[in-house]
């Protein structure tokens, strides 16, 4: 395994606050929020990051891996600067998410789960994002875009290219 990872001082403070939300004897409850923190820090949750979280909680690292590999939100591999997730569940499928995904795929030149060569974009599909009245929806990093069409995709991409 590569060099052990450690949180920065600032992240350690946030981690301490997260741990404070749970009774002291149930530190493991903080595993999901701490994995979110690790992902914010390092972009993805590597085995080294899992080991770091395990040390913080005081549990066996495989117990963190059990969690990190279960939830789809945790990136196991490095991802692009912008992660684009098209909801593909039924309500969005009924309103045309297929063409949104195809358009994105064509524009970015990448397929499902892939990252552009320049490391800017990763393309994904997401299960229902609970905004079915505003579909198709597209989650770009932390922001939800609604009523997305191929034209709107172009606007979003232009905005991201600028930003």
């Amino acid at each position: 395994m590569a060099t052990p990872l450690e949180f920065t001082e600032a992240a350690r403070e946030r981690a301490a606050k997260i741990l404070d939300r749970y009774p002291a004897e149930y530190r493991k409850s903080a595993v999901v929020p701490l994995l979110h923190l690790a992902q914010e820090e390092w972009g993805h949750v590597s085995p080294e990051a899992m080991a770091c979280v395990a040390r913080l909680i005081g549990c066996s690292p495989v117990k963190v891996a059990e969690i990190a590999t279960f939830y789809p939100m945790f990136n196991r591999e490095p991802v692009g600067e912008h992660v684009l997730a098209v909801c593909h569940t039924l309500p969005c499928a009924l309103t045309g998410c297929g063409s949104v995904f195809d358009h994105l795929s064509e524009k970015l030149g990448i397929g499902l789960g892939e990252t552009t060569a320049d490391g800017r974009f990763t393309l994904r599909k997401s299960e229902c994002l609970a905004a079915c009245d505003r579909g198709p929806v597209l989650l770009v990093n932390r922001r939800l875009h609604t009523h997305v069409s191929p034209e709107k995709v172009d606007e979003i991409l232009t905005e991201l290219e600028k930003g």
């Binding site: 395994m1 085995p47 080991a51 066996s60 690292p61 495989v62 891996a65 059990e66 590999t69």
Partner: peptide
């Protein structure tokens, strides 16, 4: 009480595993 084994991945992809290096 040594907890070297876990189940990783989800659903039908679930597998028994150890952690790298442990």
């Amino acid at each position: 009480g040594t907890s070297e084994l876990g189940v990783v991945q989800m659903g039908s992809k679930s597998e028994i595993a150890t952690f790298e290096g442990v």
